[in-house]
């Protein structure tokens, strides 16, 4: 053993999830996650997605061999600082209200000339299968860290998207009669030990919305709002929500507008 070896202190946070998140009775899941997070310091594996996303953003690709640096996310071509905090929004060129993910699909197909089937092939990563959309979303969202959510809801189509999202939020269906509102319209409630944000209030929506995308420790994956919505609806026993659909964007608009004024803190790290 060399002299240097003796000075090595290992702060390995690479324990099994089960071991690090086993809950003493009085500890809430938030406290357990905060403790787990503290072991990481400021580190978040989401950075691995941000790095990959940055490379994808800057690399010329597709039939036109251009990068995404001319992609307009609403604040002008190539402007990513603060862009995520102002989405979803109305886009003149597509004549649609778009969230970040659907806007990226537009840029990758129209601007870069990548086939849509290729762009949408892996919407959500799973181990070896990596999602470009998740990585780029992480990179772009990180550039809004510290920005205030600003959803003015000026355009009629933005208002309509909000109205659709709000209606879907309260829509009860499926064998269990669940709506989003079943779990997310009261304050201070939990499912098992998991605290539920009251998404109908500014405070609750801000707490939730400002922290997506997030690295999900239990899955070892970075997840975006599109994933979050699909997975909530899966738990509601409903069929598969289509990625980038008007309902997905409507729900995102409902949450984003309710979170108006909140300070973006994503990608975050979650259970």
């Amino acid at each position: 053993m060399s002299v240097q070896d003796r000075y090595i202190s290992l702060v390995a946070a690479c324990t099994l999830l089960g071991a690090s998140l086993s809950l003493p009775a009085e500890q809430t899941s938030e406290e357990a996650i905060a403790e787990y997070h503290a072991m990481f310091g400021d580190e978040n594996p989401a950075e691995l997605w941000q790095l990959r996303g940055e490379e994808l953003w800057k690399t010329p690709r597709g039939s036109r061999q251009v990068s995404l640096e001319a992609c307009d996310l609403g604040k002008g071509p190539g402007v990513i600082a603060g862009a995520y905090a102002e989405l979803p929004r109305w886009f003149e060129d597509t004549g649609k209200v778009q969230d970040l993910e659907s806007r990226l699909v537009t840029c990758m197909t129209n601007l870069q000339g990548l086939p849509e089937s290729e762009v949408l092939a892996v919407k959500f990563g799973d181990g070896e299968q990596k999602s470009e959309l998740e990585a780029i979303t992480a990179y772009v969202a990180a550039a809004s860290r510290g920005s205030r959510i600003t959803i003015p809801l000026d355009h009629a189509a933005e208002k309509a998207a909000y109205a659709l999202g709000e209606s879907v939020f309260f829509y009860r269906a499926g064998p269990h009669d669940f709506a989003c509102a079943t779990c997310h319209s009261e304050s201070g409630k939990r499912i098992r030990l998991q605290t539920l944000p009251q998404l109908t209030t500014s405070e609750g929506a801000q707490a939730a919305y400002t922290r997506w995308p997030a690295y999900r420790v239990s899955q070892g994956e970075l997840r975006t709002m599109e994933w979050r919505l699909q997975d909530c609806l899966r738990q509601q026993r409903l069929p598969q929500l289509t990625y980038g659909s008007d309902v997905a964007i409507g729900l995102t608009m409902y949450l984003a507008r309710n979170a108006n004024g909140g300070e973006m803190a994503a990608p975050s790290i979650k259970r």
Binding site: L164, E166, S167
Partner: peptide, 27 residues
């Protein structure tokens, strides 16, 4: 909702939803 911009009810919401979802196994 406390922060709501009062929403107009969406006509034929069930049809709108069906257009935005696909079957997934038993769901």
């Amino acid at each position: 909702p406390l922060v709501s911009v009062l929403a107009e009810p969406v006509p034929d919401l069930t049809a709108t939803l069906k257009a935005a979802f696909t079957d997934k196994r038993q769901a």
